[in-house]
């Protein structure tokens, strides 16, 4: 066990021995040698990327433009000026002051998304480890079943699920949103796919030789090896949970809202002030963008590690 921790690369290198070690290739890559892709690309690439980025960013920027404007200007000018107007902070203050339980919603969203993300990563990796690396009866069938469960239309589950939550007395409480999302078919599928190629059998073997039981092997070998994919899964789950609207709306309601439920309430007045609504959109998205700036780095590092380990 301890032996393994100190030198995790030995079995790995052994595993990839036939291919002459991906590690070595990766190391070489830093010196930008070998395959053509390792050369610095030319301006065409950056132009293309710039265009992709512009398309990605504009709709959100459009929301910022409207959020910094006012309702009248928005209605009069279909194409907003490219420079934000001066009303952004005023509009944001209006969002924060509005009777929509903003901060409660914010912390609810944060708590739900964080717990869900951690839980999904843990249970999905556990199941993915089992599906991809362990032999047991009915494995293939059960995996197909997992994928098939994704095909169940979720809209209709609402009534039976609500009845269930009501029986448990969870209506209006955060666990009604957290518990059903604690492990997802997507997550299991995703981790299975990843561990299939990223986790060498030799690593598990080595751990077992050291006397680890399967859970220890999972904990000390599979979990670390799964990190790049797990980071992505965590981020995806966090975002999915943060942006989810319908189920939290039904089961929690505006009394104990999540952020999208609360922001939606900005539309409740007879007159729909687009500058206010868009400010709400921007304010609800900013935390994710911040998370994204930090986790995004983590994510990219994760992907790079994935390459090295592959």
């Amino acid at each position: 066990m301890s032996n393994l921790k100190q030198e995790p690369s030995i079995p790995q290198i052994r595993q990839t021995a036939g291919a002459g070690a991906a590690r070595a290739a990766a190391r070489k890559r830093k010196k930008s040698s070998g395959f053509g892709a390792e050369r610095r690309p030319r301006w065409v690439t950056y132009t293309l990327l710039g265009a992709v980025l512009a398309i990605s960013a504009y709709p959100m920027y459009y929301a910022v433009l409207l959020a910094s404007s006012d309702a009248v200007t928005i209605a009069q000018t279909p194409i907003p000026s490219l420079i934000p107007q001066g009303n952004f902070f005023e509009n944001v203050t209006r969002v924060l002051d509005a009777d929509i339980k903003f901060w409660q919603a914010f912390f609810n969203s944060l708590l739900i998304a964080a717990i869900t993300a951690l839980s999904v990563v843990f249970f999905s990796t556990l199941a993915g480890f089992s599906f991809s690396k362990l032999r047991f009866k009915g494995r293939a069938g059960l995996l197909v079943f997992v994928i098939a469960t994704m095909a169940v239309p979720t809209q209709l589950g609402v009534v039976p699920l609500f009845i269930l939550m009501a029986e448990l007395g969870w209506v209006g409480q955060l666990q009604a949103v957290i518990i059903p999302g604690m492990v997802t078919a997507f997550g299991v599928f995703w981790m299975t796919q990843y561990l299939e190629s990223a986790l060498p059998y030799e690593l598990i073997e080595a751990a077992r030789v050291d006397g680890c039981n399967l859970f220890r092997a999972f904990w000390s070998v599979a979990l670390p090896a799964a990190r790049p994919a797990a980071t992505m899964l965590a981020l995806f789950t966090f975002v999915a949970s943060w942006t989810n609207f319908f189920w939290p709306f039904i089961v929690l309601g505006p009394a104990n809202p999540t952020l999208p439920v609360s922001i939606q309430l900005l539309q409740s007045s007879f007159f729909k002030d687009q500058s206010l609504i868009m400010s709400g959109v921007v304010v609800a998205t900013i935390p994710l963008v911040i998370l994204f700036v930090f986790a995004g780095r983590q994510l990219v590092t994760g992907i790079m590690q994935g390459a090295v380990k592959g």
Binding site: F162, F249, G253, P254, L265, Q267
Partner: peptide, 16 residues
Amino acid sequence: RKAATTGEARDNLNTR
């Protein structure tokens, strides 16, 4: 408890 629109209020009422 406020719902933003009558449509949402109706969905909520019917489901519950």
